[in-house]
Write a protein that binds this DNA or RNA. Structure first.
Lengths: 238, 238
DNA sequence: CACGGTTGCGGTCATATTGTTCACGAGCCG
DNA sequence: CGGCTCGTGAACAATATGACCGCAACCGTG
């Protein structure tokens, strides 16, 4: 079953302060799987861009929305987007951190809430977890089970485990990546253990990590007796 | 922290089928910390009730929204509530489980997505996790931290218990469903084994499962020698 | 027209092989 | 020397496969 490479997630940065806007834009550009489609400085402009993109057939997938805009509040813009029925997800970015705003953000269908100031790693964690969510939904042809839906919703939450190789050693990781890149055909965990001298458990752990990161594709291999074996292949995309 | 100080979460059940509405109402009543404020049978009625309660100063906290309503779609009602800026959370309840609806639900700020039919324990798990979320937010003073917000979001979408029958793998199930949906003509178990690389036994097991769920139709195929072969076709129900 | 033979799928079971988890040990750093 | 990190091996759970038998409809003969 051919698994297509995912198109990048199209992002619009909404932020009135030029310096911050620039910073966010740079951050987005640094992340794999995201494509910056522009920045907007006002609520008006933001809504227009989102609506225009949707009707032009190249919808904006994600908006990084500052709450404090010169002409309106970010929540109002979010509500307008909702009211128009646009299928755009929104991550709120704000220095305001009172309860009412958080509640309001959730009620406006905001997917994540980032409090300024934040570090790049926090930012990256949020967006990565969003990418995770997108990928999981895309892997489903059609959502069939409650567990699949639960999984998708759960990956919208903020895990701190992104890009933090916990329990993984850099040297081993490098070896695995190098071997995968050299190999044209997909590789299974058992096939990895011999050439690299790793145990099955360890090999699988690294492959699984890379798959979660979206760097390798994972697909079950049928046809042999026994539980199906997952095979992993390096994605040359990007 | 004493739980009794919290006011109950006020719930509105939106469901046009009287039997289901009654069942949901009973379920809500059985859960501690929730208070049923009524049921609505149409989208119009639902919106009116939510708006009226908000302006009367006794806002509805949570709506259990059926997606299939006689006068409009649940997502449209959700968008209207959003557009009005009402701080009400929504849990979607639906038998429809395609990708588009799930995406749309998230974009409409839906907090959880329950697939009908569900057991009481699934229902209870979803509402309990929502109650957790409410409590966490209420425990905060007016100023919140990033980690507190993260925590709240996480428990908002915490996965509940699941009940995919054992012996079936999600990835295989997805592959089968995807193939069935892509195929216009009915498919037999043997015909499924080649394109997906599955054995006949496995293919049949998944097809049989989907048939039991009512997602595919099963019919014997006559005219060929040998025992008649069952053919399965995706039901485009809805 | 009746009736046994042929055919090829339906259903079940044992088997194979991996995924997962857990406790433990080896190396490293302070 | 103590604590932390990472890999290993073993035990257990999960899940597809192959083989086997029986069945239900076609297909011949009488």
């Amino acid at each position: 079953m051919p698994e297509s490479v995912l198109p990048p997630i199209r992002v619009l940065v909404v932020e009135d302060e030029p310096l911050a806007a620039e910073a966010h834009a740079v951050y987005v550009g640094r992340l794999a799987g995201f494509e910056l489609v522009g920045t907007a400085g006002t609520g008006q402009d933001a809504f227009r861009r989102v609506a225009a993109a949707a009707s032009a057939g190249v919808p904006i997938d994600l908006v990084l929305m500052d709450m404090n805009l010169p002409d309106s509040h970010g929540l109002d813009v979010s509500r307008r987007i909702r009211a128009a029925g646009l299928a755009t997800d929104i991550i709120a970015i704000t220095a305001v951190r009172d309860l009412e705003n958080v509640r309001g953000a959730i009620a406006a269908g905001v997917v994540q809430y980032l409090i300024k100031p934040f570090t790049y790693s926090t930012f990256a964690a949020k967006l990565t977890s969003y990418r995770h969510f997108r990928r999981e939904l895309n892997e489903q042809a059609s959502v069939v089970t409650q567990s699949a839906v639960d999984h998708a919703f759960a990956s919208l939450r903020a895990p701190a485990d992104i890009s933090r190789p916990k329990g993984l050693a850099d040297s081993t990781l490098n070896a695995v990546v190098a071997y995968l890149q050299a190999q044209a055909a997909p590789v299974s965990a058992s096939e990895l253990m011999k050439p690299l001298g790793l145990s099955r458990v360890t090999a699988r752990r690294y492959l699984e990590y890379l798959a979660d990161l979206g760097l390798v594709l994972r697909a079950p291999r049928y046809g042999t007796p026994g539980r199906p074996e997952n095979e992993y292949s390096w994605t040359n995309a990007r």
